[in-house]
Design a protein around this nucleic acid. Structure first.
Lengths: 321, 321
DNA sequence: CATGTCGATTGACAAAAGTCAATCAGAGCT
DNA sequence: AGCTCTGATTGACTTTTGTCAATCGACATG
């Protein structure tokens, strides 16, 4: 909030250049500094979100397939990246698109809730700096040591930084060793408050996880391969905010879930706008489960995934009126 | 709404250039067009609001004087342009600043209400293109032939165009020749609906007018010099949406006002965010009247005007607690 | 069918912006 | 004071971007 001394001149340079359309040398002259400095300041201004450059994401929504997916699953909006010339590797485009969509969805004063994981981190990384006001970013679930280069709390903090927002971390691990401890921890006032705060959010950003051998929960060591197999036998189909769900989108009744500190599903569904981002083809089944559980209202994914979803939907619900 | 065929490629070029940070020649190569075309498309994208470049207006709010003005008059936010190096002619900076502030205030789905006049037209002219969704722009009052190069309805339409919004004009003149006719016209369903719609707006943009010999109402021929003198003798202090107000911000009880088709003052005050923009030093008295009538919640003006306002306030309300 | 018109497109050149090594200024330390 | 480190600033150079006259192509018209 409080501007550092040099921010004043950066701000002035940005105003003259971007708003008044002066050239860099004119700005330099006006502010009595070298043109090289102006160029530097302008980069700073863009990085700090003093200047916002955003590209409309309409293009990705103006797509037959996206509309059909919206209709099929009753979603507010679907954005798709195709295999066109926009990107060499379509999947890698997802985080960029998601970051832009997310930025368009955040409004001043919003309280937003983010999950964590590889995809969410990639989104944070691809996100532009923006100067929103009064935004708060909270975590959706407890933390976990991570095998990747990031930690869950860094995810939240990075997004908060990009949005010029306040970031609040969860002061709890994701999974505890006993159900009793989890229950007790959930009743701690600090934790209780954080859990209760999730339902009061305006916007959520999250993904659905797989239950493969190289899925997140396994890699983080939260779950052993043995346990995984047992859970799959019990009907585990995907992971939402750390919690295991069944194919019909309900919380799987198992010990693991009971040892968890994470958002209550009703709280998640109480958030009006919920953006789901799915990058990997392997997440087809988990995504179906997430749809069944009505976990999200907005979706960013690949065209091929959307095609599979729509096809599956048509097959399972034959002959509409 | 519906994109013309070439918009697709403009959109793609904008995405690759602004979001992915490719150079123009790389974009050209990727899309199989010449680099010159890319440069052209990018300009179009900026003009059409597919790409938004905006500069934060914080700089103009981070000002002691602005804060004092906010406190003194209970306003939400005040933005000031000073006599610094940002502009050769400080007053000419006002429309630019106001346009940027206004753009920051408009949110998707808003219904905004704009008055008309030289200042509002200058603001429309300085406004960037933006791609808001579901915005409606309505006029605040009836129309009048104008001695300047613009017409009231053009004001509304221009702002609508810049916001990619729907513009609705008032189907009535501002002043009629008899009170009876005005009353009858106000009861016409079309007009009634338009008048009623004003209170349902989310945001308003307007100015306060003077009552000098070269003021708007005179120049437009709505009022003769004789009438003007009489009205001033009756306590006329300024003009809000065509209507004459007294120094304490109330509607002046006169024949002229009764012949008017314009927004009801309570309807105006029912709009949650109301941006007042004042450029000319001569508008000091009218602005005081507008403050007294609590017509606005946000203000863009010059530092010198703000200084006079704050000084006046301090003098009239001595020794606060 | 030739001809005019209008917008889209391009190549070539001029203008503007980006970059980087070198320099400078100040803070902190011995 | 002298030294070192860090970050800001700049001049000189390179790369990228903006512009515009010329050309192309589709369509309408005499």
């Amino acid at each position: 909030m409080a501007y550092r001394p040099t921010d004043q001149i950066i701000h002035k340079a940005a105003w003259l250049y971007y708003t008044h359309g002066l050239r860099q040398d004119e700005v330099a002259q006006r502010l009595n500094i070298s043109r090289a400095s102006v160029a530097l300041y302008l980069r700073r201004a863009r990085e700090a979100g003093i200047v916002n450059i955003s590209t409309s994401t309409h293009l990705f929504r103006d797509d037959r397939l996206a509309r059909r997916a919206e209709d099929a699953f009753g979603l507010d909006t679907v954005w798709l990246t195709g295999e066109d010339e926009l990107s060499a590797t379509p999947a890698a485009e997802i985080p960029t698109l998601a970051a832009n969509v997310f930025l368009e969805m955040v409004e001043n004063g919003d309280r937003v809730c983010v999950a964590w994981g590889r995809t969410v981190y990639a989104i944070a990384d691809a996100m532009n700096y923006a100067d929103r006001e009064g935004v708060t970013v909270v975590e959706m679930c407890g933390n976990l040591g991570s095998p990747y280069s990031y930690r869950p709390d860094q995810c939240t903090m990075e997004i908060a930084r990009r949005l010029n927002a306040r970031g609040l971390n969860f002061y709890a691990p994701l999974v505890l060793s006993t159900e009793k401890l989890a229950r007790e921890l959930r009743e701690e006032p600090v934790i209780r408050e954080q859990l209760d705060g999730i339902g009061a959010c305006d916007l959520a950003l999250f993904t659905v996880g797989t239950l493969d051998t190289d899925s997140h929960v396994i890699k983080c060591g939260a779950l052993s391969l043995d346990e995984l197999e047992k859970l799959k036998a019990m009907g585990a189909a995907g992971v939402i905010a750390g919690q295991i769900i069944t194919a019909d989108g309900r919380l799987l009744d198992c010990d693991y879930n009971r040892r968890m500190i994470s958002a209550d599903f009703d709280a998640i569904r109480a958030i009006p706008r919920r953006l789901m981002v799915v990058q990997e083809d392997e997440k087809f089944e988990p995504l179906l489960a997430a749809i069944a559980g009505r976990f999200f209202t907005h979706l960013v994914t690949t065209s091929s995934m959307a095609a599979r979803l729509v096809e599956h939907h048509a097959a399972s619900q034959p002959a509409p009126a």
